[in-house]
């Protein structure tokens, strides 16, 4: 017996079929790439063949690139992003909560946050370099600022979306102002906070690579930029691939954490 089916206007596939389709699509892409490069339809400098890229990848893993091992590049990039993420979380969550619950705090902070928030981080990178030099400090400050905004804004949105009844119920049950924040407002906002962190990691990663291209002598962004200056296109491709894979993995991890810790959100 066949199963019930919904009336559909747009094409729908089973999730298994979607995966098969994706695999086929990816295989066709690599095949096209292989043909274009191996038959020299596109010059090697523009598009090296996947085989060359793979060999170079093994070479970079073994002996590094641009004076540093791949792990050093990777490690310093990860350190910059996650140290910044940590600092941003420490500031953004409490500030997001206080701006949402206290109109004094809101009135005082609003003009600054509203101005800086839509600024592209690279627009104030020169200023940060003037103030803090080109060391680790300035990169961490830049990335922290990039990550802060989405976490802060999502925390605030989370607090503002708490149903009034929930707050009132807690007050009737004897919650103090501080208990209200820790026992109702913070847990109620967790889903939004996690979303903010997810977006923040994305922003941070973007900003990191850009910052490493402007002012750094290590990191994945620096590696890619150096390779492009010497037209080593295969290393550029490798760098982009690694950056992409890490972004996907961290996002999957965040989604896993969200599902695990915010089980009630559906």
């Amino acid at each position: 017996m066949s199963y019930a089916r919904n009336y559909q206007v747009f094409p729908k596939l089973s999730s298994k079929k979607i995966v098969i389709l994706s695999v086929v699509s990816l295989a066709l892409f690599i095949l096209t790439w292989l043909i274009l490069s191996e038959l020299k339809i596109v010059p090697k400098i523009i598009l090296p063949s996947p085989i060359i890229v793979l060999n170079k990848f093994i070479g970079v893993i073994k002996s590094g690139y641009a004076d540093k091992s791949l792990y050093e590049h990777l490690g310093i990039s990860l350190f910059r992003v996650f140290a910044s993420l940590f600092i941003a979380i420490i500031f953004a969550i409490p500030l997001g909560i206080f701006v949402a619950v206290n109109d004094y705090v809101r009135g005082i902070l609003d003009p600054f946050i509203e101005f800086y928030r839509p600024l592209p981080p690279l627009a104030y990178l020169p200023l940060i370099i003037i103030w803090f030099g080109i060391g680790e400090m300035s990169k961490i400050i830049l990335i922290t600022l990039a990550i802060f905004a989405p976490i802060f804004l999502n925390t605030r949105a989370g607090v503002l979306s708490i149903p009034q009844e929930r707050i009132r119920a807690a007050l009737c049950l004897g919650a103090s102002k501080w208990q209200l924040i820790t026992s109702v407002i913070f847990p109620s906002s967790l889903y939004h906070i996690f979303t903010g962190i997810r977006i923040g990691i994305g922003f941070g990663w973007t900003t990191l690579v850009a910052a490493e291209m402007v002012a750094a002598n290590s990191g994945l962004g620096h590696m890619v930029l150096t390779a492009s200056e010497f037209l080593v296109t295969e290393v550029v491709l490798i760098g982009i691939f690694i950056i992409g894979i890490i972004a996907i993995l961290t996002d999957l991890f965040m989604r896993y954490l969200t599902k695990k810790f915010i089980h009630w959100h559906r």
Partner: peptide, 12 residues
Amino acid sequence: GVVFQKNALMPW
């Protein structure tokens, strides 16, 4: 004690 129509329990 107050009983609300909805949304007043702590889902976590």
